[in-house]
Design a protein around this nucleic acid. Sequence first.
RNA 1: GCGCCCGUAGCUCAGCUGGAUAGAGUAAUCGGCUUCGAACCGAUUGGUCGGGGGUUCGAAUCCCUCCGGGCGCGCCA
Length: 586
Amino acid sequence: MKHQVEQLLLQSLEQLKKQGDIAHDLSPEIQVDRTRDAAHGDLACNIALMMAKSVGMNPRQMAEKIINCLPVSDNIEKVVIAGPGFINFFLTQASAGSIIKTVLEAGVQFGASSRGKNQRVHIEYVSANPTGPLHVGHGRGAAYGATVADILEFTGYKVHREYYVNDAGRQMHILAVSVWFRYLQAGGIPVKYPSQSYRGDYIRDIAQLLSTKVGDKLYKTEAEIFAGVCKDEDEENGDKEKHIDDLIANAKKLLKEDYQLVFQLAIDEILGDIKQDLAEFGVNYQRWFSEQSLMDRGLIDDAIRRLTEKGYMYEKGGALWFKSTEFGDDKDRVVVRENGQTTYFASDIAYSMDKLDRGHHLIINVLGADHHGYVPRLKAAMEALGANPDQLHVPLVQFAVLYRHGEKISMSTRAGEFVTLRQLREDVGNDAARFFYVMRKVEQHMDFDLDLAKSQSNDNPMYYIQYAHARICSIFRQLSEKGLDDNSAQGVDKIEYLTTRHEKELIKKISAFVETVNKASEELAPHHIVHYLRELANDFHSYYNADKVVIEDESIRQARVSLVAAVRQVLANGLTLLGVTAPEQM
RNA sequence: GCGCCCGUAGCUCAGCUGGAUAGAGUAAUCGGCUUCGAACCGAUUGGUCGGGGGUUCGAAUCCCUCCGGGCGCGCCA
């Protein structure tokens, strides 16, 4: 409908050009918006205001000329000039009501579009290091990424979801040594736990598992373990980083091929836990991409070679640098260290290259806001690889602060004191967690009120929306109890019986769903859908209180049944996009 | 010091590619169940859109500047 009005305006402008009222080379962008106030009709256009200056006419005169040249249409009841020069369109009842038929025919597909034109999009989210269970900070990225991916798919993109597993770095070796030490301690060998190792209880669990697998096979004496190892930070001349690195080296030497067994057990256990956690949260992936596999396949070398050939690399101080400043970064970045090891960034260049080589047009990398300094070099890498930096989108997810009983819950990752995603899910439920996480726009700092998320009351916006859906389902139960059919099919041809203020509002709101989804898709902003659903639920609840659906008059009843059936469908489609269930009763 | 994000009602937040009188929820007050689920609805109260300049017919929205809060600025990941 919006599109149709745009076409009418376009024709009117063409006519005005023919008449010589406006210049031929003028081609303003026509912008038709849904009105906020019903008094302003259904659709409004500000074209006259925008053009007034360049044609030297006052806006209201301009608007009048445009309206005079507007072709007639069956769908439009009247067109008026309002305010400073807005053109307001009032749609006919039949035209506005036809949306109900559209919704019921489209079903779960209502709201879908083809705006993505089947473009391939790669979206990466969470990608937390597998060194421990996910915490509530990861949860927001998980909910956001999964929802954006679903929205993009719904709007016509071919979506590929990936979790990048940092299984190649030093952190993984620290993890392995942590597990080994807990295993030794459990076996009564008095080793002092290194300050830089992982402290959570889950390390003990993995150590226990190791013990049942290998028995005492990996026991070594304290003297062997600490032979030649730099002292830890709490001792004189100690260095905590050197300490742990030396321990890793000793562990590899002492355990030989069994070191790999410890290493693999640790990562398998933790990654397995993360996978299960996310799956239970409704957050899924097409692929878990291993950083190690980049090395094994020689992709890091390939990437470095490519950038070298293009002249974007140079050597300085024994290291190899990427000229990211040529693409707007603050400083150049090291890719190969003096000691010959590649950096984390080198892996990321290779990963970006691989994403592009696999044919993705759009690459979305959901990062925590604390990584924002990383964005310029990622864009630089993209551009150096020959892509357009606009193909890369990096939504930055701000931290969520948990509140319980009005008090902030403090968290410290280092001390292993944090609320895990699993704890949160068990506490408030998957639906509320998914809903609350995407309720605010991502770049907004968020207060996550646990009590509110958990409360099954009218304060909780998620229940408010779900309640609207359940209420409609209840209407249909009433119908069948009274022996009346679900006659929404007949109702769609009786739209003229929908005449109350609330009915008109609801119809208008339903037809805004497609635009809302498209906006959410374009801006990678799921929170628009949350707000929309809240408004739709509100309109429905108002209607429910004002007008009754299950009534004697057959024509009106059928019309109303079709209306609420459409509302139910839109609520369900919206909630599904958010990863939240649409219950039939609650 | 430089860079990024944020600042809108008592509280939590929408609106930000410039448009009509700045909106929701919540809190506070009042009212509504013999009628499809009161987990609901209706009404009232509540604003220097952080401050100040500028651009514009029109600024919460764009530009400059200052203030306040968060986060970055490694041959860590």
